[in-house]
Design a protein around this nucleic acid. Structure first.
Lengths: 313, 313
DNA sequence: GCGGTTCACTGAACCGGTTCAGTGAATCGT
DNA sequence: ACGATTCACTGAACCGGTTCAGTGAACCGC
C-alpha cells in the first residue's frame, strides 16, 4: 500500500489504479500511524510566556510562517505568565508529541529546561539559559534596556517608572536586574512595578503609578501591550503625551506606529527572530545524531524614537 | 506496564515501584502510540483566515483557554487570507492528526467543508456554511454591519468607504453583500475596497481611499486591524479624527479603547465565542456516534460607540 | 532451451503503547 | 483438607501505517 502510493517497486499503471481508488474513497494515510513508525510528527511545540502580549501574538504568527516553510506545524500553548503552568505545559509537550520545542521562558533558571533539552530539541528565544540547549535566539536585553533608559536620561528624565510583565515566582528577573544596574549607573530613580500584559490590567497598574507622588515623568514599559495600557491610563488622568508624560515601549509592534503619539520603542524584527528559531530547530531535528551544538544567535535591538518621548522641562 | 502505572489489577506496592522507576528513568508514555490505539490525539486544528488580524490573534488566545479547559491542545495554522491555502491546510489537518477542527472560513461556499465534515468534527465560526456541520458559532454580520452603517447614516454621513479584508477569489463575500444591501436601503453611497489586515497594508489602502475625490466622510473597517491602518493614514494626511473623518471598526479589540480617539466598533465577546466553539467541538468529539446534530449558536453583536465617529457637518 | 537476473508484488515484522484473555498462587468457605 | 473464587501478574493481539525479505513470473543472453 505504502509502496503502491509512492511508486516504489510498482508499475506505473498499478500506481495509477491505486491512486485513483484512494482518491475515490477519500483515503489518506493515518498521520498518527506514520508518525509512530517514522518517529517524527512534524509538529513543533510553541510555548508562549503570555499570549496576552501583542508582541508574542505577532511572534507566533511569524513562527507559523517560518515553521511552515520548513514543513512543520505549530502546537501553540500559553503559560499565561505563570511559571508553574509553563513547567506543566513543557512537560506535556515533552511526551513526544512534538519534534521540538520553541520557548521564550518565563523562568530561564528552572532545571526543567535542562531535563527537556535531554529529550527534545529545544530552542529558546529571549533570555539566556544557564544550561546548554540545542540553540538559542538571544535578545540583548541589556542593550535594549540601556538604550531606552539612556534615551530618557538624556531627555532630562530622572524619575522613571518601569513596568515589567509580572512573573510572580521567579526570583531574579533578568530584565529587572538590568534595569536596576543601568539606573544605578545613570543615577536614575526607577520604580519597578509588575504589570500584566492585558491592556486593562496594565491600565490599572499604570493608573496606580500615575497616582503616586511624586509622579514619574516617564514610564518605560517592557512590552508594547503594557504601553498601550499606559496610554489609556494617561488619557483617563487627563495627562497629555508626551508633554506631561513620556512613554517608551518594547518590541516595536506595528501598533506603536498607530498610537498617538507614536510610541518610542525598542525594535527587533520578529520575522527574523522567528526564522532564526525555526532554522535552529529544523537543523536540530534533522541532525539529532550530532551532539547538541548549542548555536546562539544574538539579536541586537535598536531604538525607534517616535513622539511619545520628549525632553522633560 | 500500562496497568501498572494506572493501578489496574495491580497491588499498591507494585504500582509504587513501577512509578518510582518510571520517574527515575524519566519515562513518559509515548503520546503518539497512545493516540494510535485510542484513536484520539487530544489535538484540535485551528484554521485562522488571517492571523495578521489582531481580532483573530485574540480569538486564538481565547481558544487556547477554552480548549485547554476541555483537555485539548491547539494546532494553529494561518491561511493568510488565501482561500487556496486554506483548502490545503484543511486537507492536511484532515489527515487524522486532529480530533476536530475549528475554522472561521474565508470561503464558506467551498464544497471542501462538507467533505471535511464527513471525516472530522467541524465547528465553524463566523459566516454560515451551506452544508450541515457538527456545530457552528454564527456571527450575525447582517446586524453588525447594519448597526454601523445606520449609526453613520444617523450622524449625517452619506459618502462612506468600506474596507473589507481582501478575499481574492471568493465570488460572493457575505459581509460585502450585506453592505451593499444596507447601503441601498439607507440611500448611502458606499465604496467597498479590499484591504489586507496588516497595519501597513491597510494604511496604504486607506491612503488611496483618502486621496479619492470626493473624499468619503467616514470609513467603516471590517476589522479593528484595518481601522488601525486608517488611523495611521489619516494622521499622515493631516486629517483630524473625528472632526474631518469618522472611523468605525469591527470586533472591538481592546486596542479600540486605547487609540485616540477611541474607536467605535462592533463588539462580540471573543471569550464567549471561543468557549462556545470549544464546547460544541468537545461535545462532537465525545459523542461521535450521535448523528451530526448541527447545533448553531448565534452571536448577536452590539455597537460600542466611542469618539471616532461624529456628526458630519 | 536453460540458468540467471530483473521486476512487480505479497506476507510479515515493527513502531510503542492499550487491553483482552489466560496462568498460577493465595484466600475463602464448608 | 479440598474445591471454588479472588487476585496479581504475564503473553499476545491490535491500532495503521512503513519497510524488509521472500516469492513467482517474465525476460535476458548464450
Amino acid at each position: 500500500m505504502s509502496y503502491a502510493l509512492r511508486g516504489i517497486q510498482t508499475s506505473p499503471e498499478t500506481q495509477k489504479r491505486v491512486r485513483d481508488a484512494a482518491d475515490e474513497l477519500g483515503y489518506t494515510a493515518h498521520a498518527v500511524a506514520r508518525a509512530l513508525v517514522s518517529g517524527r510528527t512534524g509538529l513543533v511545540g510553541v510555548l508562549s510566556g503570555s499570549l496576552e502580549d501583542l508582541g508574542e501574538q505577532r511572534f507566533v504568527q511569524a513562527l507559523d510562517r517560518a515553521l511552515g516553510e520548513k514543513g512543520f506545524s505549530m502546537l501553540v500553548t500559553d503559560a499565561r505568565g505563570e511559571p508553574q503552568r509553563e513547567a506543566e505545559l513543557a512537560r506535556q509537550l515533552g511526551d513526544r508529541w512534538v519534534d521540538g520545542l520553541i520557548v521564550s521562558p518565563l523562568d530561564p533558571s528552572a532545571d526543567l529546561w535542562e531535563q527537556i533539552a535531554e529529550t527534545l530539541p529545544l530552542v529558546t528565544v529571549g533570555d539566556a539559559l544557564p544550561g546548554p540547549t540545542v540553540g538559542e535566539v538571544l535578545f540583548d536585553n541589556r542593550t535594549g534596556v540601556s538604550l531606552v533608559l539612556e534615551h530618557l536620561h538624556a531627555l532630562g528624565h530622572r524619575r522613571v517608572a518601569v513596568l515589567t510583565p509580572s512573573r510572580p515566582t521567579t526570583p531574579d528577573r533578568p530584565a529587572e536586574v538590568v534595569v536596576q544596574e543601568v539606573c544605578r549607573k545613570l543615577d536614575l530613580s526607577a520604580t519597578v512595578v509588575n504589570s500584566p500584559h492585558s491592556l486593562e490590567g496594565a491600565a490599572r497598574v499604570a493608573a496606580a503609578v500615575l497616582d503616586g507622588r511624586p509622579r514619574p515623568t516617564a514610564i518605560f514599559c517592557l512590552s508594547d501591550s503594557i504601553a498601550c495600557g499606559v496610554y489609556a491610563a494617561a488619557y483617563d488622568h487627563g495627562l497629555r503625551l508626551p508633554g506631561q508624560l513620556s512613554v517608551a515601549g518594547y518590541d516595536d509592534h506595528p501598533i506603536a506606529n498607530v498610537l498617538t503619539p507614536g510610541l518610542t520603542s525598542v525594535s527587533w524584527d520578529s520575522t527574523d527572530v522567528a526564522a532564526a528559531a525555526a532554522t535552529l530547530l529544523a537543523a536540530a531535528v534533522d541532525g539529532r545524531r550530532r551532539a547538541r551544538s548549542g548555536s546562539t544567535i544574538r539579536v541586537v535591538p535598536r531604538l525607534v524614537e517616535r513622539r511619545s518621548t520628549r525632553r522633560h522641562s
